[in-house]
């Protein structure tokens, strides 16, 4: 596909050639290196010039594919797919229920145990037990709220694939 200027040039040069018989090694415009993959000639006289000028802005046509492959390989790390799968599983149904239940119950048991111990220590039965049981209940609710928000954040992080904790080394 000869470029217009290419055609002009050729006819002009061949006119000179015909008139003067000077450029006796010059033969048309099908010259240039071959493409790396295809068998087509890489350059068609001046036609390629404009095309390259444009392709220069983003990536070269010839090595663009290679460049994207290289950058993809550079960004790709050993996957955290297993972690995502497990996290996703933890998000669902029974696992989540069990987690929240254990958080809740553990706080109540801990409150009751503390109260029982303090009562035994001071002989104030049952006041510490009652008070700390209530506090344990509150702590259980707090645990559940915290665990829920943590689970939600995990879900969001898993969807986005960002770390759950940002690294602040300077505190």
């Amino acid at each position: 596909m000869p470029h217009p200027s290419c055609g002009q040039k050729t006819s002009y040069i061949s006119t000179v050639y015909n008139e003067i018989g000077l450029l006796d090694t010059f033969s048309g415009c099908l010259y240039g290196a071959r493409d790396f993959e295809g068998g087509a000639p890489l350059f068609h006289c001046g036609s390629q010039r404009a095309k390259f000028g444009m392709a220069q802005d983003d990536k070269r046509a010839e090595t663009g594919d290679l460049a994207s492959r290289i950058s993809k390989a550079q960004s790709e790390r050993i996957s955290v797919r297993a972690a995502r799968a497990l996290r996703r599983n933890e998000m669902t149904g029974v696992g989540r229920a069990f987690r929240l239940a254990s958080e809740f119950i553990a706080a109540i048991i801990m409150g009751a145990a503390l109260g029982f111990g303090l009562d035994a220590l001071f002989g104030t039965r049952p006041w510490f037990l009652v008070a700390l049981l209530l506090l344990g209940f509150a702590a259980g609710v707090l645990n559940v709220v915290r665990a829920t928000s943590e689970l939600n954040r995990m879900t969001a992080d898993t969807a986005k694939g960002v770390p759950a904790v940002t690294d602040d080394e300077d505190d």
Partner: peptide, 17 residues
């Protein structure tokens, strides 16, 4: 290089003429 060579060839032809 190619463009240069082409321009040079053009120049030579022109000047010779």
């Amino acid at each position: 290089d190619l463009a240069d060579a082409r321009a040079k060839a053009h120049g030579i032809a022109e000047s010779t003429r």
